[in-house]
């Protein structure tokens, strides 16, 4: 009797998860094709595929696809996934669905560190090396996180902690602006474009570096699925089940910071993806099981960011929008809806 009941349930769940994943992958492919095929020059899908299969040919179209659009689309996908995952990890850490790399000032901390590096350390070094930028962004994000963790010992309320994070964000932004004011014109141009957040001008080495950093962190996060599942019941239960809380929390925050830092190093601060995407994914899956939510969030973030980047690029072409302008327009309403829903349910 019990078995007869449980089996269809479990199978039903798996069907549902499978459906969601299939939809996400289909959306990912569709958006990827859209990104590669459209823009100032439209390339029909058939020729896109031929160019992709044919490698970096001589034609102008192949050049556009291979040198500009494909790395940009891949980067948007990778970094979008990283942002969504970072958000999910931070939400787990703070047991609060509003936590995210942008809200908690982590992106702004990374941005400040990158600005410092760009203006002072890499002056005259020509193109900034991606390794140094990632390292700087990681250091900046860790500093911001460290500060938040220090505050979290005093501020037990999640709401006040979030306000503190927002304040850290403002302080870092102010410091960044300060640096910009006294920087050289060349640096300013460089920095200004970057600090607004954009996926433009991505190179293959950059994609490789980002893929490596995001890949390692995402795999690490996936391997944390089991303790995350226990931690969702609260620290006490997780500890009683044998989770080493201190090591686990350190791993969570390091992974979340590394993911957010990578995004910031390559694309500047991107807002709302970290909060909106995990929320939407959990609703779609109708579960918060990390084993399903982690990969689905990554896919969802990739789809979301690629779609937003496509809009940023094409909506007012030839003028390009900041990526955050677009992610905010779509992400902020989701966050507001989320807060309203939470209000309804005590």
């Amino acid at each position: 009797m019990e078995n007869r009941h449980s089996m269809p349930d479990a199978r039903g769940c798996r069907w549902h998860y499978g459906l969601v994943f299939a939809a996400l992958i289909a959306a990912l492919l569709a958006v990827a094709v859209l990104n590669v095929a459209t823009g100032s020059v439209s390339i029909p899908a058939g020729r896109v595929i031929r160019a992709l299969l044919g490698g970096e040919g001589e034609s102008a179209e192949a050049g556009i696809i291979w040198k500009i659009r494909l790395p940009r689309a891949l980067m948007a996908a990778l970094l979008g996934g990283a942002l969504a995952l970072s958000g999910f990890l931070l939400q787990t850490f703070f047991a609060n669905p509003i936590a995210g790399p942008f809200v908690l000032g982590i992106s702004s901390g990374a941005k400040l560190a990158v600005a410092l590096t760009l203006v002072f350390a890499l002056r005259g070094a020509g193109a900034a090396s991606s390794g140094a930028l990632i390292a700087a962004a990681f250091a900046g994000s860790l500093l911001a996180v460290g500060f938040i963790l220090l505050l979290s010992r005093k501020l037990k309320h999640a709401a006040t902690l979030l306000v503190a994070g927002i304040m850290i964000g403002y302080i870092c932004s102010a410091a960044t602006e300060f640096i910009v004011t006294f920087a050289d014109d060349a640096d300013i141009v460089n920095l200004h474009g970057w600090s607004q957040g954009s996926f433009s001008g991505m190179s293959w080495p950059g994609v490789g570096a980002a893929a490596l950093a995001v890949g390692i962190a995402a795999a690490g996060a996936f391997m944390l699925s089991k303790p995350i599942g226990a931690y969702q019941l609260g620290e006490t239960y997780a500890r009683s089940l044998g989770v080493n809380i201190r090591a686990f929390r350190a791993a969570l925050i390091l992974l979340a910071s590394a993911l957010a830092a990578t995004v910031t190093a390559f694309a500047g601060p991107v807002s709302f993806v970290g909060i909106a995407v995990p929320y939407l994914i959990k609703r779609m899956l109708n579960t918060s099981k990390p084993l399903a939510v982690i990969p689905a969030s990554f896919l969802g973030g990739a789809v979301f960011c690629m779609a937003c980047d496509w809009i940023a690029r094409t909506a007012f072409a030839p003028t390009e929008l900041n990526i955050s302008t677009v992610t905010s327009v779509f992400g902020a309403p989701v966050v507001i809806a989320m807060m309203l829903r939470r209000r309804e349910r005590p």
């Binding site: 669905p97 599942g229 969702q232």
Partner: peptide, 15 residues
């Protein structure tokens, strides 16, 4: 816990 069924909660005990 967010979006966990009673079964999910009980199953955490198998950790």
């Amino acid at each position: 816990p967010e979006l966990m069924t009673c079964r999910d909660v009980a199953a955490v005990g198998r950790y």
